[in-house]
Amino acid sequence: EIRVRVEKDPELGFSISGGVGGRGNPFRPDDDGIFVTRVQPEGPASKLLQPGDKIIQANGYSFINIEHGQAVSLLKTFQNTVELIIVREV
């Protein structure tokens, strides 16, 4: 597990896919977790996150067994800083 802090400027600078009942993700199709799919170059998350990172927690909210829409809404709700716990396959 890796813990990262992303400062919104003005957005977080990454996209996610997956989630329960979602269209899945390109990295682990059998896993309904939330995965980072795109990281904006030079964006707030560019040095912190990589495509394929699985987000398991954001600001204390579990991202395990969460629906895609709910994950997106939560990330939009947070002000300024988001603390993520991620799992990265090496």
Rank of each mutant, 00 (worst) to 15 (best):
E1V: 06
E1S: 07
E1H: 11
E1L: 06
I2G: 02
R3G: 04
R3L: 10
R3Y: 15
R3H: 08
V4P: 03
V4D: 03
V4L: 07
V4S: 02
V4E: 00
V4F: 05
V4H: 05
V4W: 02
R5D: 05
R5Y: 08
R5S: 14
V6W: 05
V6R: 00
V6S: 01
V6N: 02
V6D: 01
V6H: 01
E7W: 09
E7F: 14
E7C: 13
E7N: 14
K8W: 06
K8A: 13
K8R: 12
K8G: 14
K8D: 00
K8Y: 05
K8P: 09
D9S: 13
D9I: 02
D9M: 07
D9L: 05
P10Y: 14
P10I: 04
E11T: 07
E11P: 04
E11N: 10
E11H: 07
E11K: 12
L12I: 10
G13I: 01
G13W: 03
G13E: 00
G13C: 01
G13N: 03
G13F: 04
G13M: 03
G13D: 02
F14D: 06
F14V: 04
F14R: 00
F14E: 03
F14G: 01
F14L: 03
S15M: 10
S15R: 06
S15C: 09
S15H: 11
S15K: 09
S15D: 12
S15Y: 07
I16Q: 02
I16R: 00
I16T: 05
S17T: 12
S17N: 06
S17Q: 11
S17F: 02
G18K: 04
G18M: 02
G18N: 04
G19M: 03
G19H: 05
V20R: 11
V20Y: 11
G21R: 09
G21I: 06
G21L: 08
G22L: 07
G22H: 08
G22M: 08
R23D: 15
R23A: 08
R23I: 14
G24A: 13
G24R: 11
G24Q: 11
N25S: 08
N25D: 13
P26C: 11
P26D: 07
P26Q: 10
P26I: 11
F27N: 06
F27G: 07
F27Y: 06
F27S: 07
R28F: 13
P29G: 11
P29F: 09
P29N: 14
P29Y: 14
P29E: 12
D30Y: 08
D30W: 08
D30Q: 15
D30V: 09
D30N: 12
D30F: 07
D31R: 05
D31N: 06
D31H: 05
D31W: 03
G33F: 01
G33H: 06
G33A: 07
G33N: 03
G33E: 01
I34R: 01
I34F: 03
I34A: 01
F35E: 03
F35Y: 14
F35M: 03
V36D: 00
T37M: 08
T37Y: 11
T37E: 13
T37L: 12
T37N: 13
T37R: 09
R38L: 11
R38N: 15
R38M: 15
R38H: 15
V39S: 00
Q40L: 14
Q40E: 14
Q40A: 14
Q40N: 14
P41T: 13
E42D: 15
E42P: 03
E42R: 11
E42W: 10
E42Q: 13
G43E: 04
G43L: 05
G43F: 07
P44E: 04
P44I: 04
P44S: 09
P44K: 07
P44W: 01
P44G: 09
A45K: 02
S46E: 10
S46I: 14
K47D: 15
K47V: 08
L48S: 12
L49W: 00
L49S: 02
L49K: 01
L49Y: 04
Q50W: 13
Q50A: 10
Q50P: 02
Q50F: 13
Q50C: 11
P51W: 05
P51V: 09
P51C: 10
P51R: 12
P51D: 07
P51N: 05
P51H: 03
G52R: 04
G52H: 04
G52Y: 06
G52K: 04
G52F: 05
G52S: 04
G52T: 01
G52C: 03
G52A: 05
D53P: 01
D53Q: 03
D53E: 02
D53L: 00
D53I: 01
D53M: 01
D53A: 02
D53V: 00
D53F: 00
K54F: 01
K54Q: 07
K54Y: 03
K54L: 06
K54P: 00
I55C: 02
I55D: 01
I55E: 00
I56M: 07
I56Q: 07
I56H: 00
Q57K: 12
Q57H: 09
Q57D: 13
N59R: 01
N59H: 02
G60E: 13
G60I: 02
G60C: 06
G60Q: 11
G60M: 05
Y61W: 10
S62T: 10
F63I: 01
F63A: 01
F63E: 02
I64M: 14
I64H: 11
N65E: 13
N65R: 10
N65G: 11
N65I: 01
N65T: 09
I66G: 02
I66M: 11
I66V: 11
I66H: 01
E67Q: 11
E67P: 12
E67A: 12
E67D: 12
H68Q: 11
H68F: 15
H68D: 05
H68G: 09
G69N: 15
G69R: 15
Q70L: 13
Q70R: 15
Q70N: 09
Q70M: 12
Q70W: 07
A71H: 00
A71Q: 03
A71G: 04
V72M: 14
V72P: 02
S73K: 14
S73N: 14
S73F: 11
L74N: 04
L74T: 07
L74Q: 07
L74K: 09
L74S: 04
L74E: 04
L74G: 01
L75C: 02
L75K: 00
L75E: 00
L75Y: 02
K76D: 14
K76P: 01
K76H: 11
T77Q: 14
T77N: 14
T77A: 13
T77E: 13
T77I: 08
F78I: 15
F78H: 05
F78L: 09
F78S: 09
F78V: 10
Q79V: 13
Q79I: 13
Q79K: 13
Q79P: 13
Q79E: 15
Q79D: 13
N80A: 10
N80E: 11
N80P: 14
N80Q: 15
N80M: 09
N80V: 08
T81L: 06
T81V: 12
T81Y: 14
V82Q: 03
V82L: 09
V82G: 01
V82S: 02
V82E: 00
V82R: 02
V82W: 00
E83L: 03
E83Y: 04
E83K: 04
L84W: 01
L84P: 02
I85M: 12
I85A: 10
I85D: 14
I86A: 05
I86T: 01
I86K: 03
I86V: 12
I86H: 03
V87H: 13
V87W: 12
V87R: 13
V87T: 14
V87N: 15
V87D: 13
R88T: 00
R88H: 04
R88V: 00
E89F: 08
E89P: 09
E89H: 07
E89D: 08
E89R: 07
V90T: 08
V90K: 15
